[in-house]
């Protein structure tokens, strides 16, 4: 495919998908190790009521209020989960289940009550995202990358997700040692003076920010998949955290790129006329990678566990 077609139509969705995948996979590594993997799932459900409330308050689909609404909803959800867990002495999984289903139901109800027929806001959009539509119409070819005027026409999701990714990388890099220590041995981390509670909260907030930014661009299903699948697959490949992070980034990139390409061109190769959902395909590919590593990865077994339980 020539640059004239590739740059306007496929380059930006590819970049956005890849950035979103990596931004979710990085905190996902720690969440999977801390057995908090389902936080991504909970966040991506509660984002819906946040966005709807933001829409109701501002009356328009604009990005910042919606991001704020989504972040606000995530905070409300975290507070509610903690409150229910402590006040009711309920195990965290069930408390999470109570909160995110209720908030999602509230979001759906609000959405049905609101007249959103004039704007593009519906549950399906929230779930699958719309990666294919993030095209860069001002580009004419590779040369547009140097053209300031054309660059101004980039879909706004791209700089946003790039900024988020930078933030996530910075967070991981700055807090690398405390994060690593407190993930593997929380008691030891406390004795050497790391504030594990604050750090855990910071990790969840980082994950929430990544989830909300990625959600805005690619929909919730990729968010959940990327939080869990690439880090889990990477975990099958190695016992070292550094290597695991590298693998997870590789897996996230491979899923995003090959998922997008397969969704866009796969059906054409098979003779069908239309593309399929890129978000769904990216999630599927990440699942296939996980399946492959779970079957063949060098470090797939639990050390010390009986070979067949």
């Amino acid at each position: 495919m020539s640059g004239e077609e590739f740059v306007p139509l496929s380059l930006t969705p590819l970049l956005i998908g890849t950035f979103a995948a990596i931004a979710c996979a990085l905190p996902g590594n720690f969440l999977v190790l801390r057995k908090q993997a389902l936080i991504g799932d909970a966040i991506s459900h509660v984002v819906l009521p946040g966005i709807v409330v933001a829409f109701l308050l501002t009356g328009a689909i604009s990005t910042w209020p919606m991001m704020l609404g989504a972040a606000g909803a995530a905070v409300v959800a975290v507070v509610m989960i903690e409150a229910i867990r402590r006040l009711g002495q309920i195990e965290p999984g069930a408390a999470m289940g109570v909160v995110f289903t209720t908030m999602f139901a509230g979001g759906v109800l609000l959405l049905e009550q609101t007249d959103t027929s004039t704007v593009h806001l519906d549950v399906e959009h929230a779930l699958y995202g719309n990666l294919e539509s993030l095209i860069w119409l001002d580009a004419t070819g590779w040369s547009s990358l140097l053209d300031v005027q054309a660059l101004a026409g980039l879909p706004p999701e791209l700089p946003r997700i790039a900024l988020t990714l930078t933030g996530v990388i910075l967070f991981t890099w700055l807090f690398w040692r405390p994060l690593k220590i407190s993930t593997f041995d929380e008691g030891f981390a406390r004795t050497i003076g790391i504030r594990t509670g604050a750090l855990g909260l910071a990790l969840v907030i980082t994950a929430a920010i990544a989830a909300v930014a990625a959600f805005d661009a690619v929909g919730s299903i990729i968010v959940i998949a990327m939080f869990i699948c690439p880090p889990s697959a990477a975990r099958m490949m190695t016992n070292r955290l550094e290597t695991q992070i590298v693998w997870s980034v590789i897996f996230a990139t491979v899923s995003a790129v090959s998922g997008y390409v397969l969704a866009g061109y796969g059906p054409l190769w098979l003779g069908a006329a239309d593309a399929v959902s890129a978000a769904g395909m990216i999630a599927t590919i990440s699942g296939l990678i996980l399946a492959l590593t779970a079957a063949l990865g060098p470090c797939r077994a639990r050390t010390g566990a009986p070979s067949h339980a």
């Binding site: 399929v276 769904g280 999630a283 699942g287 797939r300």
Partner: peptide, 30 residues
């Protein structure tokens, strides 16, 4: 059979199956 904890397994199955379902939904639409 792998070292994954249950929550990661839940999340992996959930997202991958749902994602695949969405792919199939778009196929049906076309």
């Amino acid at each position: 059979h792998t070292r994954l904890a249950e929550d990661a397994a839940i999340g992996a199955v959930l997202s991958v199956f749902f994602g695949f379902g969405i792919v199939l939904l778009t196929v049906i639409q076309t």
